[in-house]
Design a protein around this nucleic acid. Structure first.
Length: 505
RNA sequence: CGGGGUGUAGCGUAGCCCGGUAUCGCGCCACAUUUGGGAUGUGGAGGUCGUAGGUUCGAAUCCUGCCACCCCGACCA
């Protein structure tokens, strides 16, 4: 492989007339524009609900495929439960109701009618006897169902996952990060023992962490939520927390140990091997289209989206550069050959032979869309037996030989995947700051951002006070946290370990 | 849900204060010349001014309701 030139191709073209707002200028505007211009999603006619566009959905499908396989590899099966949940189910688990009551969409009628003047109105006579809640999550309907599935320890464990949409009536929404309706998966498992359920909770947390790191190239902290941040109805909530480029944390996945709360609420008992009747132990775990937001914010830059090769719908784009019909055909032949070789390696490739756009335009467009590798082929390359290979993550390009090109590209893709991860990891690691005083805490939060590792007295009151004063919350208590004597930065009371604070999405 | 702001062609906008039928750029279409980093020229198409009412001879402009989006707060994955 020969490498004759290597340079940054943005050095002269930093002002992009049709570009997007830079991250420094306005991070949240940068995000909004990026989502729009990269064709990922847009606002719909319905308040708070988004349209996920084909290119964005293709990324979500890749996430789904990888996660689905991981769930199946850990023994889970998919199933589907109803969108609607009888209102009465919600009243059965007290803290669960409290957690979701304020953001539920409710169906009260089942018919429309013409009011006589051509207006379609709700038919007041078609009132539902019992209102239906559009699921904000499915624990209740699922545990109501599980009651019929479980009699004996022989029926356990039940390891079920569902891919679904859920609705949480949010007041402030942002594409992917927080929308009234979103897509997710929710795993719901039932176990004979507490220990088994706890193991399941941890297993799935690790699945999420592995997915985030291996596929999304997103380093995460595995941790446990404080009482304050815990899922409504859970005994323990585990989470993976990621750090975005603006220094704010984002919860990327959660896994809950539900104890026997839902089994008790829905009276789900089983007979053990010893012939004793006991309530079933439960877990639930989920990740959502919010991961799309995490993916975008973790890696992308001022030129657009940066996608890890493993999740990129298009991993390689080939752009021909020709003057004559003859050149076009020669490049086409070369491209066909390369496409065949790449496909054989399972690499997705697009040959952009549109003759309505010029090469420079295509370069910019595919960069905006985050395609990891670009191959440009022109007359010069035909003569020299080379192509121009550009990598999106570093925005560099080099001229390489056509010999063994498919192998070169395959290696480059895995190199990019690794580089993106390492870049994010190094940002994350340099943005976990240990502080020992409240003054320092506020200073770091304000000036640097990121995670702040500090001692905390373990009380909800302190956490709430800190949140009120600084907007930072305890993102998690990291798993395998080292024990360390210290004093709470806020109250000065004794503490045995540091927890991670941050401003969060 | 509270405070503030915005809504004019696919996108970004001028006009609004002071009412008289909508400006400019990008994009789009056709043709020609172009094609190794977002091409150029010529010609052309495209607008119930977010929406529903009201005031008026006449409303993008003034008034009211509603809807959506953005920023800030409370809430949240």
């Amino acid at each position: 492989m020969l490498s004759i030139l290597k340079h940054n191709f943005y050095s002269k073209h930093t002002t992009m007339s049709k570009g997007i707002t830079s991250r420094n200028e306005d991070y949240s505007q940068w995000y909004n524009e990026l989502v729009n211009k990269a064709d990922l999603a847009e606002h719909s006619a319905v308040r708070g609900c988004m349209v996920i566009k084909p290119y964005g959905y293709a990324i979500w499908e890749k996430m789904q495929a990888a996660l689905d396989q991981m769930f199946k590899d850990t023994g889970h099966s998919n199933a589907y439960f109803p969108l609607f949940i009888p209102k009465s189910f919600f009243s059965k688990e007290a803290s669960h109701v409290e957690g979701f009551a304020t953001e539920c969409a409710v169906v009260t009628h089942y018919r429309l009618k013409n009011d006589g003047s051509g207006q379609i109105v709700v038919d007041e006579e078609a009132k539902l006897e019992e209102e239906l809640i559009v699921r904000p999550t499915s624990e209740t309907i699922i545990w109501n169902t599980y009651k019929g599935w479980i009699q004996s320890y022989r029926d356990l464990p039940i390891l079920v996952n569902q891919w679904a949409n859920v609705v949480r009536w949010e007041m402030r929404t942002r594409l992917f990060l927080r929308t009234a309706e979103f897509l997710w998966q929710e795993g719901h498992t039932a176990h004979a023992t507490s220990q088994e359920a706890v193991e399941e909770t941890e297993r799935m947390l690790n699945v999420y962490a592995t997915f985030a790191e291996d596929w999304m190239a997103l380093p995460v902290v595995r941790g446990k939520k404080t009482e304050n941040e815990r899922f409504a109805g859970a005994l323990d909530t585990y989470c993976i927390e990621a750090l975005m480029q603006d220094g704010k944390a984002l919860q990327a996945g959660t896994s809950h140990f539900l104890g026997q709360n839902f089994a008790k609420a829905f009276d789900v008992k089983f007979t053990s091997k010893e012939g004793k009747l006991d309530y079933v132990w439960a877990t639930s775990w989920g990740v959502s289209t919010r991961l799309m937001g995490a993916l975008i914010m973790a890696h992308s830059d001022d030129a657009g989206l940066v996608l890890p090769p493993k999740l990129a719908p298009i991993q390689v784009v080939i752009v021909p550069i020709y003057k004559t019909e003859e050149e076009s055909q020669q490049i086409g032949a070369l491209a066909d050959d390369l496409i065949a070789q790449l496909k054989q390696k399972g690499i997705s490739v697009k040959y952009d032979d549109r003759d309505t756009q010029r090469p420079g335009f295509k370069f910019a467009e595919w960069e905006l869309k985050g395609v990891p590798v670009r191959v440009a082929v022109g007359a010069r390359d035909l003569q020299q037996g080379t192509v121009e290979l550009a990598r999106r993550d570093k925005q560099t390009k080099e001229t390489v030989s056509q010999d063994g090109l498919a192998d070169t590209i395959e290696q480059l893709l895995s190199n990019i995947q690794k580089n993106i991860y390492e870049k994010a990891l190094s940002y994350r690691d340099t943005h976990i700051t240990e502080v020992d005083s409240y003054e320092e805490f506020k200073k770091v939060l304000e000036e640097k951002g990121g995670f702040i590792a500090a001692h905390w007295d373990g009380t909800v009151e302190t956490e709430k006070r800190v949140k009120e004063e600084t907007k930072a919350t305890i993102r998690c208590i990291p798993l395998n946290n080292k024990e360390e004597e210290g004093t709470c930065i806020f109250t000065g009371k004794p503490s045995k370990q540091r927890v991670l604070f941050a401003k969060a999405y």
